[in-house]
Nucleic acid binder design. Structure first.
Lengths: 211, 211
DNA sequence: ACAGCCTCTAAGCGCTTGCTCACCCTCGGG
DNA sequence: CCCGAGGGTGAGCAAGCGCTTAGAGGCTGT
């Protein structure tokens, strides 16, 4: 089955939300689930609600997904993959540590703001996953942590950053970015780009870079 | 069995865990609910689970609380009151803006780490409240926002801080502090005091204060 | 044409949920 | 001694839950 790669790079303009989910009906169900989970939370969402949003009968869900938890897992997995990829591609680019940190925070935050419904599910419904699926996802988060910590360490080694507590600052930077998914609102006055720029600036200050 | 052994005293203030909840049985139920909500979330917690943790039958809950949602409201209200009071007393103290900001962040974070089970319910189960209760709580959060923004504005006016975007930075500071409740773990290697100190330092850097 | 397959539905099963109700216990004041 | 009041319980109700099953409908290849 699975054709592969999850990576569909958002080049410049177009963006197809969940293109990698292949049977069209399965994609509709998944999109409906993301909306419902983000709005009411996993446990408060019923399978009937998901199917209803997708314009299908409750039973249709079980043709494409074994359980409601599998739906959450798929969402969480794809979302984490995408978030991690975004972080990494910025972190592994060329340039000074300050430039890479700035780019990583900017794009990571922009994703959390722009896809805040998905991000909310991805970041805040982790406990609803079964034990096995959860450990799989936790491993992905460890990799996000490692990516950020690496930039900080390199910045310190190069004398660019002044960071007394690298693990603690790594935690704080990621926490700051992730929490964007909680408060960001499309009707608010800031665009994802603006929040990304603001946060990149704030994080550079946290590591002692003057502008 | 359960004696009132839960007394965690924070030096510097008279504080009994949930002393203001008056019938003893009601207090036990509320403490049980905080634990359960923090562990599994509001919607995944059953009234039977809460009653069971308090050593009572499921029906006992309804002698002291009209609904499960009222329990959440009581917890949320008391928790927000306490968090806001902690923020305010630091914010309205004497001293420079930098000193007050540092103290506010330190104590706010310390509370979120030390009482992370309560804080998790208070900060992340807001959507589970009914409409009326939610707007009441949202007003309290607006006041937290105002308290922090005031310090930032005063610091900028006094020339202590360099903050281009005061509302945005206010949001970021509060977001950073609040998210502590999500990741903090008692078994981790940091104490609430250490996290508070680290975060106070990071926030001072965010507003452009050199140490 | 039609068999084989996949998608989707109507109906519903077994179970759990939030919550209720009739009744029992304990206890202080006459 | 009885009394009434209020905290507590066992049993259980109506509703809603995740999920299953039997079968209808519509493609495709021969």
């Amino acid at each position: 089955m699975g054709t592969a790669d999850v990576t569909e790079e958002t080049a410049g303009g177009e963006e197809k939300p969940w293109g990698e989910v292949t049977p069209e009906a399965a994609r509709r169900l998944l999109v409906a689930a993301v909306e419902a989970f983000a709005e009411r939370g996993y446990h408060a969402t019923t399978t009937r609600d998901i199917a209803g949003r997708a314009g299908m009968s409750p039973a249709a869900l079980y043709i494409h997904y074994k359980t409601k938890e599998e739906l959450l897992h798929r969402i969480s997995r794809i979302g984490h993959d995408k978030a991690l990829e975004i972080l990494r591609s910025a972190a592994e680019a060329e340039g000074s540590a300050a430039e890479r940190l700035s780019a990583a925070v900017r794009s990571f935050v922009r994703w959390h703001a722009g896809h805040h419904t998905t991000a909310r599910v991805v970041q805040y419904e982790l406990d609803a996953l079964g034990a096995e699926h959860r450990t799989e996802i936790v491993e992905l988060r460890r990799q996000s942590d490692a990516a950020v910590r690496r930039i900080l360490n390199e910045g310190v080694a190069a004398g660019e950053f002044d960071v007394p507590d690298v693990p603690g600052t790594t935690l704080a930077v990621l926490s700051l970015c992730i929490d964007v998914a909680r408060w960001f609102n499309t009707e608010g006055r800031r665009t994802p780009d603006e929040v990304g720029a603001l946060y990149a600036d704030l994080v550079l200050r946290m590591v002692g870079v003057q502008k």
